[in-house]
Simulated assay, not measured.
Amino acid sequence: MRLLFAGTPEVAVPALDALLDSRHDVVAVLTRPDARSGRGRTLAPSPVKRRALEAGIEVLTPGSPRDVEFQARLAELAVHAAPVVAYGALVPAAALGIPTHGWVNLHFSVLPAWRGAAPVQRAIISGDEVTGASTFLLEEGLDTGPVFGTLTETIRPRDTAGDLLGRLSVAGADLLVRTLDGIEDGILSPVPQPHDGVSIAPRLDVEDARVRWRLPAYAVDRLIRGCTPAPGAWTLLPDGARLGLGPVAPDPEVVDLAPGEVRLTKRDVLVGTATSAVRLGEGTPAGKRTMDAAAWARGARLADGTPRRDGLRLGEEAGDGPQPGSAQTSDLAADA
């Protein structure tokens, strides 16, 4: 089949590679326009665009797939199908009907679970034990189209969103190729999604990634892993500065720390939660490089031994500190 591949981030590249190695003919790639990135904020092509240019494939970068010139070019290409992996923009009805067999989307969940922009992250944060990937026929609804095929993947106890998405991107690429094979052979038809089991996975923003230390240790652990590498978990220091956080390790033996309270040992930085403490892994102070949490703590001149009790307690809302007459605790980012 003649294909237009639509995708943008690194996670879409394995699918493009798999299609380039398949019996199908990728005649063009649709991706988001070059975006500014890095400290210099210079314009840079998407990972999919870079790979397509390496392969000598035509690249289309309209500001929106609603662009009439893009839709005219899509019609000229006369593609049989348009496989989609994390393209990043809604495809309008006018464009959905142009490819003969429609747009075939690879989504990283077992639909109808976790429809939306952050299915892998939400699955980890929610404590799911199993997730997967689905191929489905794109329609105007949010990931509501009929399903061609699925696969499942175990969520491992220490998986970050990056770890899990990396495995799903490779396994999903094979699923996408097999789906297109079945469509071309006339042996595969999509099946409507069930009405039960629907859950929504909205995009995570920076505030979603803020650690609430008054949650149980398992919830703190899941949130941080689900936000790694993006958007990146964080907390507030007593002076109001942000500290980026890498994955933590729950420590069920330490139960005497209040939520957000810090204890520094020779090797570890422990932080209290609603249940037991967690050991910090890596920290990223504002404007500085990522470093081991113990190295950060030494540089920040935190006291050794028992929990510090000479700092201010920061609440969830600005200015929400200890009330007059209350005991002050050095919380890393305690919530009210």
Results as ranks from 00 to 15, higher is better:
R2G: 07
F5R: 05
A6K: 03
A6M: 12
G7L: 05
G7A: 08
P9A: 09
V13L: 12
P14G: 07
L16C: 08
L16A: 06
L19P: 04
L20P: 01
L20W: 05
S22R: 03
H24W: 07
D25S: 12
V26R: 00
T31H: 05
R32G: 07
R32S: 14
R39Y: 10
R39N: 11
G40N: 13
G40R: 15
R41A: 14
L43A: 15
L43R: 15
P45M: 09
P47V: 09
V48Q: 12
V48W: 07
K49F: 06
L53E: 15
L53A: 11
E54F: 08
V59R: 05
R66D: 15
R66Y: 13
E69M: 08
R73A: 12
R73S: 08
E76W: 06
A78H: 12
V79H: 04
A81Y: 05
A82R: 01
Y87I: 02
A94N: 10
A95R: 01
G97N: 12
P99Y: 12
P99S: 14
N105F: 00
F108V: 04
L111R: 01
G116D: 05
A117Q: 12
R122S: 14
R122G: 04
E129F: 08
V130Y: 10
A133Q: 00
E140N: 08
E140M: 09
G149Y: 00
G149N: 15
T160I: 11
T160Y: 09
A161N: 12
G162W: 13
L165Q: 15
G166W: 07
G172H: 01
A173L: 00
D174F: 01
T179S: 00
I183A: 00
D185K: 06
I187A: 12
L188V: 03
S189I: 11
P190V: 02
P192M: 02
P202G: 03
R203T: 11
R203I: 11
D205V: 10
E207I: 08
D208M: 04
W213P: 00
P216H: 02
A219N: 06
V220R: 02
I224E: 02
T228V: 10
A230P: 05
P231K: 13
P231V: 13
G232T: 09
T235H: 04
T235I: 07
L237Q: 15
P238V: 07
G240N: 08
P252C: 07
E253T: 13
D256A: 08
D256G: 04
L257D: 01
L257I: 02
A258W: 06
A258I: 06
G260I: 00
K266T: 11
V271I: 15
V271K: 02
T275N: 10
A277K: 13
V278C: 07
R279N: 07
E282P: 08
G283N: 07
R289G: 14
M291T: 10
A297F: 03
G299R: 08
L302A: 03
L302C: 03
G305L: 07
R308P: 11
G311N: 06
A318C: 03
G319Q: 04
G321Q: 10
G325N: 02
Q328S: 14
S330C: 09
A334T: 03
A336F: 07
